[in-house]
Simulated scan of single mutants.
Amino acid sequence: MNAIYHHFIIRAELKKVFDAVSMPKHLVQWWPKTCKGVPARGEEYNFFFEEPYDWYARVSELEKDKFIYFKMTKSDPDWDPTTFGFELVPHEKGTYLKFFHRDWPEANDHMKYSSFCWAMLLDGLRNYVEKGLVVPFEERE
């Protein structure tokens, strides 16, 4: 199986970063257009981007302020077998975020494009948490 990894520092406390990657009201500030879900193991999230991208995932692992993993349940055929997640580690400058998106069936063009998109979106996450900047949904990759 294939995977995407992005690791970087966010100059903010763990709780603030965890909320930004787990709470729908914060997720919509840097990733989907709308989002519903509860950060608890086994709970379902709905990540809506635009038609036909109305995707669902289940929280497969979670420890508050440490990590959250999402197992895709209804999405694109390439994404359906995948799990993505955020692991947070205390760092002298704030929080070290370790992002993964694994279990891709092929290292195809879609996976490579998704890696680029994740990098751009995660930069948006960093700017949102550190500076309160929000990129309008229509301008996100």
Rank of each mutant, 00 (worst) to 15 (best):
P136Q: 09
E51G: 00
R58K: 14
D54I: 00
A3C: 05
D76M: 06
T34V: 05
G132I: 04
F100I: 11
E50V: 00
V135P: 00
F49E: 04
T34K: 09
W118I: 10
V135F: 08
P90Y: 04
R140S: 01
M111R: 14
D109S: 08
G37V: 06
L27H: 08
N108C: 02
H101K: 10
E130S: 06
V21T: 10
L62E: 08
F116D: 08
Y56P: 00
Q29N: 13
E106D: 07
V28L: 01
E139F: 13
F47V: 05
Y45A: 00
L14I: 11
C117L: 08
Y69D: 14
N46L: 14
I4L: 08
F116N: 11
G42A: 07
M111A: 11
K33A: 08
K93W: 13
M111C: 09
K93F: 14
F100D: 10
E63G: 01
R11M: 07
N127D: 15
F137V: 03
M120N: 15
K33I: 02
K16Q: 03
C117Q: 12
S60E: 12
D54T: 02
F48L: 03
N46G: 09
G94S: 05
S114F: 08
V89M: 14
I4D: 00
S115K: 15
F49G: 02
L122A: 11
Y53E: 04
Y53Q: 02
V134S: 01
F137G: 03
D54H: 06
V135I: 13
L62C: 07
Y113W: 12
E61S: 15
T73N: 04
G124F: 10
R126Q: 15
C35I: 06
K64G: 00
T83W: 02
G94C: 05
K71I: 07
K33H: 13
F86T: 04
K16V: 00
A20Q: 04
Y69I: 02
F8A: 13
F49V: 05
V17T: 06
E13W: 08
F84S: 10
E43T: 01
H91T: 10
V129I: 09
G42C: 06
M120F: 14
F67V: 07
F18N: 00
A20C: 06
E63L: 10
E43F: 03
M1S: 15
A40M: 04
I9N: 14
V17Q: 00
V134E: 08
